[in-house]
Design a protein around this nucleic acid. Structure first.
Lengths: 320, 320
DNA sequence: GAACCGCCATGAGCGAATTTTATCGCAGCG
DNA sequence: CGCTGCGATAAAATTCGCTCATGGCGGTTC
């Protein structure tokens, strides 16, 4: 009356294949009465006899003939299920959902994704981008991704793995009077009276810019509010005003000038999960921690060492 | 470590669909701890976590995502299995294997098959023809068909249903000196010195012809031995010699002469099964018993009343 | 033809797995 | 700060599935 058991279906096909209860029983490593019982139970759930017991063989009834292919199909599906599970455990396939703040998908992530794709071509990555660290954290807490990459989340309870300290740069056009500082550094207060290339309100960098300027003692005027983070350095280089951007999102062939703020502006980038990460997530987090160059050694140059030889270290769970 | 249970898979998809263990449990009419246990058991069989338990919902792990479609597929297959079983019980679909002797597939069967097909278009009939009643009976005993149609099997133990008495006719060419008997009958001895259209050795009619001729006191000479039963009347009409054929296999537009042997030669046709027939077989046997005109009323005319209005009588099991 | 053998069914008993009942822990919320 | 919803856990009861032992039935063999 209820659903059959996969094992009952397995019993059925084995009986049919061997043509005998006894042989099927020994192939299945059970005793023959167990098989008889299960077959009878199966016949009662489907509502009619499936096998005709002949003196020296068995034969399918019409109902048995109708049912058998579906039994095989269900078993094959269960087998596929098992294989799929093993494949995800072996990182051969799967789908990983990664949530990031904007700057990550512009800066550190692309080379990592490229390396990941080369190593695990079967594991698809679905990327979800958030403009603000708080929204990223909220989405992650609500379970919208397997792994989050962004600033250190406040009060997070799950495992957190540090990726590095992201450094911010001030972008000026090449012809700006302040552009050729011999030290390569610049105090924010030197730009207190400029109109800035600001960010749209929901972009986390808007808050960050407001915050650091407030610490420097002024409130930044906005010449424009960029919706897209990546537009900010371009707009700044075009002369709309200074911009504060993560140094790692600027292309190597960028024609603006990058100056290091004095004092430096930094934020730590981390990868975090809600719980102990599963194998795929752990592997991705590992790769991320090993390969992500949050800041290029020779700031402001942005060449990240993506093609570094990597050792397949074990994916030990992080804190948590 | 072993195969999962279909119910476990059902639990999984219900949890995913409802987004909650508790809601899934009530939808499945089990308590929530039972569901928790089963999910844990399933996770241990597939070798890793499938669900991530969030405060107010659940979320699939990558392995869960990989596994879920197969779980759904397996369940769908089980559902199809159940439906297929119900459909065979309702005679909506199925496959019936019928074994017959040659003359049946030439004579009484085609109109019955037509009627069956009209009534149960989903139930395919597979036909197996045997040249000899003994071979038919042996094949049936060995389980090569669901239903056998032929002469009464000797010492048969399963259910037998009588279909009628098949009458044999002597075929002569229209210009034969013996053809226009006013009585329409003819004694076999009148043909004792003719060369007959005989049958191939493995054809049961060969034995039958030899037998009835021996009873009439002579041994029939063979002008030819027909492999195909249906060829015999044609050869006889062409003048090769007299033939003895079941009256019902001769086409209405036949241009030979059919004479009733005196004394008549008859054999009973029956349908028989090994065991109490399943619904489909029983329904076919019913139709057969109701519709098969073993001999047309006006022998030797061969018009069978195939299009007779049929009442859907109940399919009570036969003797046995 | 009598004993034997292979094959499946049946019944009893047992151990394991599943479910239920009861309870705890925890997080979110008013 | 207690309440509520949700899932995990523990223990007990029930069900389920398996094995062991046995029986019936054909078919085969000597």
């Amino acid at each position: 009356m209820a659903v059959p058991t996969l094992r009952q279906l397995e019993y059925l096909v084995t009986v049919v294949d061997t043509g005998s209860f006894t042989r099927a029983a020994e192939r299945l490593h059970v005793t023959q009465p167990a098989l008889s019982h299960q077959m009878r139970a199966l016949e009662s759930t489907v509502g009619g006899p499936l096998l005709e017991r002949l003196p020296r063989s068995v034969r399918l009834t019409p109902m048995g003939r109708a049912v058998l292919p579906h039994a095989r199909a269900a078993l094959a599906e269960a087998e596929r299920l098992h294989r799929a599970a093993r494949r995800t455990a072996g990182l051969e396939e799967g789908e990983l959902e990664v949530a990031v703040i904007y700057s990550v998908s512009l800066g550190i992530l692309p080379p990592v994704l490229r390396a990941w794709r080369r190593r695990h071509p079967g594991v698809r990555i679905r990327l979800r981008e958030y403009p603000h660290a708080d929204r990223l954290q909220a989405a992650m807490a609500a379970g919208r991704a397997d792994l989050a990459i962004g600033p250190e989340p406040a009060g997070w309870e799950g495992p957190i793995r540090e990726l590095g300290v992201e450094e911010f740069a001030i972008v000026l056009p090449a012809d700006d009077p302040l552009a050729d500082r011999p030290t390569g550094t610049l105090a924010l207060t030197d730009l207190a009276d400029r109109a800035w290339v600001h960010y749209a309100p929901d972009n986390g960098l808007a808050d960050l810019l407001d915050h650091v300027c407030a610490q420097a003692g002024f409130h930044p005027q906005a010449a424009i509010r960029a919706e897209q983070t990546s537009a900010a350095p371009l707009l700044a280089a075009a002369g709309l005003g200074p911009a504060l951007v993560p140094a790692n999102i600027v292309s190597p062939h960028f024609d603006g000038i990058l100056l290091r703020p004095d004092p430096p502006i930094r934020r730590t980038l981390v990868a975090y999960t809600r719980t102990r990460p599963d194998p795929i997530t752990a592997a991705f987090a590992d790769l991320l921690a090993r390969q992500a160059r949050v800041n290029p050694p020779g700031f402001p140059a942005t060449a990240t060492a993506l093609d570094r030889k990597d050792a397949d270290a074990s994916a030990d769970p992080q804190r948590g």
